[in-house]
Amino acid sequence: MSEATGPAPVTCATCGATPQDEAVARLTWSRGTENGREVWTCDQCSRRHLRSIEGKLDSAWW
């Protein structure tokens, strides 16, 4: 039997930032799904790329 692991650590898929407080990041960062995997975007990158996110452009285009 394999040991259950918790959720993956939160890391910004755009800039690689990691939050000091992961609980706060889960409230203020953006979460999306790309190619079947969960991706997180920090609040600063989310603001910078807001139009692309709203337009549902793939992050490769940002």
Rank of each mutant, 00 (worst) to 15 (best):
S2E: 15
S2H: 14
S2C: 03
E3K: 05
A4W: 09
A4Q: 14
A4E: 15
A4P: 13
G6Q: 05
G6S: 12
P7V: 01
P7C: 03
P7L: 06
A8C: 05
V10H: 04
V10K: 02
V10F: 06
T11Y: 01
T11L: 05
C12N: 02
C12T: 04
A13G: 10
T14V: 15
T14M: 08
T14H: 12
C15N: 09
G16P: 03
A17P: 01
T18H: 04
T18Y: 04
T18D: 06
P19K: 07
P19W: 06
P19N: 04
Q20E: 15
D21T: 08
E22A: 11
E22M: 01
A23S: 14
A23K: 13
V24H: 01
A25G: 05
L27G: 03
T28A: 11
T28S: 15
T28P: 00
T28G: 01
W29Q: 05
W29L: 01
W29F: 08
S30L: 13
S30T: 13
S30W: 11
R31Q: 15
G32L: 13
T33P: 00
E34H: 07
N35P: 00
G36Q: 12
R37S: 13
R37K: 13
E38N: 07
V39D: 06
V39L: 13
W40K: 01
T41A: 06
T41M: 12
C42V: 00
D43Q: 07
D43W: 09
Q44D: 14
Q44G: 04
Q44K: 08
Q44F: 12
C45W: 07
R48F: 08
H49I: 01
R51L: 13
R51N: 12
I53A: 08
E54Q: 10
G55V: 00
L57A: 01
D58L: 00
D58Y: 04
D58K: 01
A60T: 09
A60C: 05
W61K: 02
W61T: 05
W61Y: 11
W62V: 00
W62T: 00
